[in-house]
Design a protein around this nucleic acid. Sequence first.
DNA 1: TAGATTGTTAATCGATTAACAATC
DNA 2: TAGATTGTTAATCGATTAACAATC
Lengths: 209, 209
Amino acid sequence: MASNIPDIVISRLPIYLRALERLAQEGYEVTSSLELGKRLGISSAQIRKDLSHFGGFGKQGTGYRIAFLTEQLRQVLKIEREWDVALVGAGDLGNAIAHYKGFANRGFHIVHIFDNDPGKVGKQINGGFTILPIQDIPRVIQESGVRIAMIAVPAEAAQAVADTLIASGVKAILNYAPITLKTPPDVHVQYIDPVIHLQRMTFYLNYTP
Amino acid sequence: MASNIPDIVISRLPIYLRALERLAQEGYEVTSSLELGKRLGISSAQIRKDLSHFGGFGKQGTGYRIAFLTEQLRQVLKIEREWDVALVGAGDLGNAIAHYKGFANRGFHIVHIFDNDPGKVGKQINGGFTILPIQDIPRVIQESGVRIAMIAVPAEAAQAVADTLIASGVKAILNYAPITLKTPPDVHVQYIDPVIHLQRMTFYLNYTP
DNA sequence: TAGATTGTTAATCGATTAACAATC
DNA sequence: TAGATTGTTAATCGATTAACAATC
C-alpha cells in the first residue's frame, strides 16, 4: 500500500495543520491558500497543489472552511486517533521528553519508558509508570503493540536500541541520538538534533563579537 | 555576501560532519564518498557534488582524510570557533534545554536566559547564571553581541519574543515554539517541533492495536 | 452579476544521478 | 602497472510556480 504521494508533501501537512489550528484559535472560520501561504512563507500554488493530492477541500471564490480542512488533514495523517509511544532512555534528555506536555496534548501518549541503568530501573516517572529494563523491550512492545518509539540514549547505544525496537514491531522512530540509523525500508525514522540546526545557521552568520 | 550555494547542500554538511566524527572515533583515518554514503543512506555522487561546492578535499584512488575533511567542513560551517547563545523561556522546556549538555559539548554556550515570570526572574540556573526579565533582552543582547537565540516560550508569545530578539541584533533563531515565525530575510530560523515529526510518520503507519 | 479563489495543466526551475576522464 | 575513487559534466528526474478555466 505504498502511496505515491511525495514525502515532501506529507512533511508539509503537519505545518498546514498547525497553522489552521492557530487560525481557528484566533476565531477565523474560513481561510484561503493565499492567507495560509502568507503566514507560512509558502506560495499559495504549492498549498493548493499539496492539498489536491488528497481531494478538493475548498470552494472557488471562498476558500477553505478551517474546521473541515483540519478534520480532513487529521484523517490523512491518521491523527484523528491517539497514538501510544515508547521511550527508550531515561537520562536528562529522556526525562525532559517524559515530562514534556506537548506530546500528550497533541495525541501522543508515552506508555513505556526503558533504560539500561539498574539504578534507574524500577523508578517512577511522572508519578505514573515505572522505568523498565532494556531487556524487556521485546516482550513489552509486542504485548502492547506499540508502533512508535522515541530514542534518547547515547549515540553509541542508539543503533542497537533501534534494532531491538524494530525486531519487536516498531515502525516509526523519532531519534534524538546524534547518529544516522540503519533501518529497513518499511520503518520510518525522523531525527531531532538541535545542534545540527544551529550548525546549519552559523554558515550564514558573520563574525563580529 | 549572499552565497550562491543551495541551502539544501548546507543542510547536509552537519550530517556529513557528524558521520566523520563518528568514523574518527571508531579509529578510521580515511574514508570515501561511497562509505560515507552507505552510512548515511545518501548516494556517493551527491556527497561528492556537495563537497565540490567548497573545494577538492579528496584524492582520486584513496578518498578523504577524515581529520582534514572534518577541519574543512568546520571552517565552512564557521564552527571552528565557539558560539554564544541566548535562551528565552525558563519553563519546563527552557529548563531542559538549559541543562542539556549536548550544546556546550559541541561548541554552543548558553550565556543568557530570559523569562517573563517574576517568580522565575532572579533564580539561578545550572548553578551559574541568573534568569533575567524579558525586558532586559535589548540591553543584554546588544551589550554581549550574541547573534544566536533559542526560543522556548508558548506559541502565543513566540512572535513578540522573536521581534525583540531581531531588533536587538539576533540573526539566527532556533524556535521550539510550535509556530512559524515572520522574520526579515537576513534572519535565519530553524524549527524544532517533535510532534510534527511524529505526525509526519503516522501517515505511513497502518492501524493495528 | 462581478469578484475571488479553487483545482489543475503546462512551463520552469532546481536538485539528484549517472557516467567518465583524470589521477592518485 | 592495475585498481580505486575523485571532481565534474551532461542527462534525468522531480518539485515548484505560473497561469487560467471553472465556479462559488
